[in-house]
Design a protein around this nucleic acid. Structure first.
Lengths: 264, 264
DNA sequence: AAATTGGGTTCCGAATAATGGAACTATCTT
DNA sequence: AAGATAGTTCCATTATTCGGAACCCAATTT
């Protein structure tokens, strides 16, 4: 509908909730804590209104306000998210297969789902690591520069692909980042090959292989991937792992059939 | 208007948002996906109303509905939570100290904050592990049976302690789980000793040492802890780690001073 | 010291969105 | 096919939200 706006109701019709979600997004994705006035400037609402909305969010624990009147995301979000993550069906089904894949390759394994025009990471398994996990989970990355994203696009019907790709703003992350045209070409390749590769398209020095995962009715679309540093993941290496990655994807799909709409 | 009811506005006055949050909690903390009718039974709202509320939540991505009309938590929660977790100031300040403590002890380190009458875990650092992290983060545990919880209580003024402890329902998890009386006694001990211990009070075979963390104005109250299996964490061992745990807590507090209200 | 400014909060009539009963449709059961 | 059960849509009524303005308070300026 509207290509760009700062923080106005983005088309959907969700009444009061929609307005509150905008605030929540604003504060949650901000650099740091925001003052009342900062938010006021970005939302352009009457002060009385904004004040009430913020206090409601604070009362519910979705936001927090410190002694200096600065708003930050509230702990309730963590509570809700952790419990929703813990019982997410797709993730639960995929978990053992991600572990297997991780052990086999020794590299980092990701599970992601397509959400609008981004990929959201649902899980991540690293090798012997002291690194944070949560850091990546829940993050939204653009479809066009992640293996999982491209894999996901490859199983969509042509018209949906053009629709999604048409709406993207292609930011150049590396010399290899796709343009609209090159992306469309590669998607055709992936469709025939069954696997997507990330050839340092998002971050220099990082490569990955990904295979798509989808439910019959396309209500669930995502992928698994193996990611690692280019010096270890030579293109030959990636090619070797194509088979196991596809195998993992296949097994996850088989696992999902049970829980997902058996009829249709 | 209405004084008491089961799953209705729990006292706070957050208008429309409050009602939506009840739904969100309901679905998020449920065993599995819920049907429309299940929710209807638990909330006891008119069908038309409930239907609209649910669709708004779905439209905003806070809930999801599958082909069979079953509602589950939405991905938007993950997105919001991960980004709020990633930039949480307390967590960021604590992170290096948690790592140090982990390396020193070799056991699992937790960071938690007091939220109402529960402890919410903000971070967790395990040793060489293949175990999930997110699983624990965001979880709320009762104050009376976690080291961090007892440590947190110990720095509250007496009246707040009695207030909180008075409102608790003491569930007996193990033979060592506290009763109201024994808890109050131990809190006095902790106050003088500066460290709290969990002597298999929550789970048989699990012990921990915890030290409190607090801001001067008590707007932030929490703690760090080192947790592990009783066979490795003998009581002598725990005593040895008292000092490093307190040291970590102290350093975290020093770190927070900068970011937290310098005036007051 | 008085006046001003900036940041935030409270009030209240007007505007709007939520409510909830009932009618309606789809789906499952017998 | 009839009956029950589950889910969706409609619309007049009612409760909430809206938003402008007045207010408060602490920090600056004059």
């Amino acid at each position: 509908m509207n290509a760009r706006n700062e923080a106005t109701s983005e088309g959907r019709d969700t009444g009061t909730l929609g307005k509150l979600m905008i605030l929540l997004d604003l504060v949650t994705h901000a650099e740091g804590p925001m003052r009342f006035t900062d938010i006021l400037a970005l939302t352009d609402q009457p002060r009385g209104t904004l004040h009430r909305q913020l206090s409601h969010l604070v009362q519910e624990g979705m936001l927090e306000i410190d002694g200096d009147g600065r708003y930050s995301p509230g702990l309730r979000l963590l509570d809700l998210a952790s419990s929703s993550w813990a019982k997410n069906e797709f993730r639960l089904v995929a978990e053992p297969h991600l572990n297997t894949l991780q052990r086999l390759t020794g590299e980092t394994v990701h599970l992601g789902v397509l959400r609008g025009t981004s990929i959201i990471y649902l899980d991540k398994v690293e090798g012997r690591q002291s690194v944070r996990m949560f850091s990546q989970i829940g993050n939204a990355s653009p479809v066009y520069c992640t293996g999982v994203g491209k894999a996901a696009l490859s199983i969509l019907p042509e018209e949906r692909v053009t629709e999604i790709v048409g709406g993207l703003a292609f930011q150049k992350f590396t010399a290899n980042t796709h343009t609209r045209e090159s992306l469309l070409v590669e998607i055709a390749d992936i469709r025939s090959g069954g696997c997507a590769f990330d050839r340092e398209e998002h971050e220099v020095g990082i490569r990955c292989v990904a295979a798509p995962i989808w439910s019959e009715d396309l209500s669930l679309i995502g992928g698994v991937s193996v990611t690692g540093p280019a010096y270890r993941l030579t293109m030959e290496r990636l090619a070797e792992w194509e088979a196991p990655v596809r195998e993992a994807a296949k097994r996850i799909m088989t696992g999902m059939r049970i829980g997902l709409g058996p009829r249709r």
